[in-house]
């Protein structure tokens, strides 16, 4: 066995790092819900108007950041062998492509055959 690979595989973060990541995840989730509430209530109006055009993008960005934090630190992809990252990231790219392909294809389908209202 490759001793270096084995050592590298098991150098995981300390509990304090885990707790800091946990707090960050909680704050980001609170931010997501706050954005949702601001948009739904329209209050404060200035903030709601500023958020409205980028609401979906902001939520997806926050979600992607949370996803990356869990994968890198809690699932140890940052510390473990790169082979694990490859085995995870390659299907993730296919997964994103599946969603994009479905959205594009069905968008085209609905443009050809609009659904009854």
């Amino acid at each position: 066995m490759d001793a270096a690979a084995h050592t590298h595989e098991h150098t995981h973060p300390t509990p304090s790092v885990y707790v800091r990541i946990g707090i960050t995840l909680f704050v980001l989730t609170a931010l997501e819900v706050a954005l949702y509430e601001i948009g739904r209530r329209g209050q404060p109006p200035v903030l709601a108007a500023a958020i409205a055009p980028v609401f979906v993008e902001l939520l997806l960005l926050l979600s992607a950041f949370k996803f990356a934090l869990v994968a890198m630190f809690y699932m140890h992809l940052k510390q473990d062998s790169r082979l694990f990252s490859s085995v995870f990231v390659f299907p993730l790219i296919i997964a994103a492509a599946i969603i994009m392909a479905l959205l594009v294809l069905f968008g085209y389908l609905y443009s050809l055959h609009p659904l009854p209202k």
């Binding site: 084995h6 694990f84 085995v87 995870f88 296919i94 997964a95 599946i98 969603i99 392909a101």
Partner: peptide, 28 residues
């Protein structure tokens, strides 16, 4: 192992990869 990594851990990562595609189809 030929990779120097535990096969069980590699197996769970492969499984998780396949599950990503499964949930992508549901979310899509």
């Amino acid at each position: 192992t030929s990779t120097g990594l535990d096969s069980r851990k590699l197996a769970i990562w492969t499984f998780i990869g396949s599950e990503c595609m499964f949930f992508a189809s549901l979310i899509g």
